[in-house]
Amino acid sequence: MRLILLLLAGIFVNNYIFSQFLGICPFLGVSKKVETAAGMGVAVIFVIVLACAATYFVYNLVLVRFGIEYLYTIAFILVIAALVQFVEMFIKKSSPSLYQALGVYLPLITTNCAVLGVAVTNMQNGYNFIESIVNGIGGAGGFTLAIVLFAGIRERIEFNDIPKSFEGFPIALIGAGIMSVSFLGFSGLIKL
């Protein structure tokens, strides 16, 4: 039950984009078309789940064991960068069609703060292995939901008449703000 709540909280209540501000760069960068947004979302879910598992083991088996927890920032970012590189090579070899679909987004994910963010959150909240994974799926699912919905809105904005100085990013941010208001409606729904 707790795990289901954790998952739903990640997707709706603590949505990474609209309440935690994690992963805004790809959110604004690749949300011009619904298909590319969905591709990015899937790639992020994939990498975040792997990163949750990898950083969990690195933290508990290496950093805690040698008493160097304060180096977690360096350790986590290296693990994530290596992981993304490895995933990219692995997918390229094993499934060229998936590589075609995800390829361009994978390198971008290293600097997606949602990945490092979820790893650090798991560590700070002391989640166990299963909870870490579920938290990762929830967070990444929320990211995917947000970016796909937002891409749908942006596709429509393209055809609208907007004031000159609001074209591009400003109107996108205002749109994101309005979506964020609607996500506020979920707050307080789930208490962990």
Partner: peptide, 26 residues
């Protein structure tokens, strides 16, 4: 709260775009 961040930044960018002298590449 969270939405205010988006609104403020969006309006800031729009104002800055209007005022910045150097032609802003789109």
């Amino acid at each position: 709260m969270a939405p205010g961040a988006f609104f403020t930044l969006g309006i800031f960018m729009a104002i800055f775009k209007k005022l910045a002298k150097k032609p802003v590449s789109e």
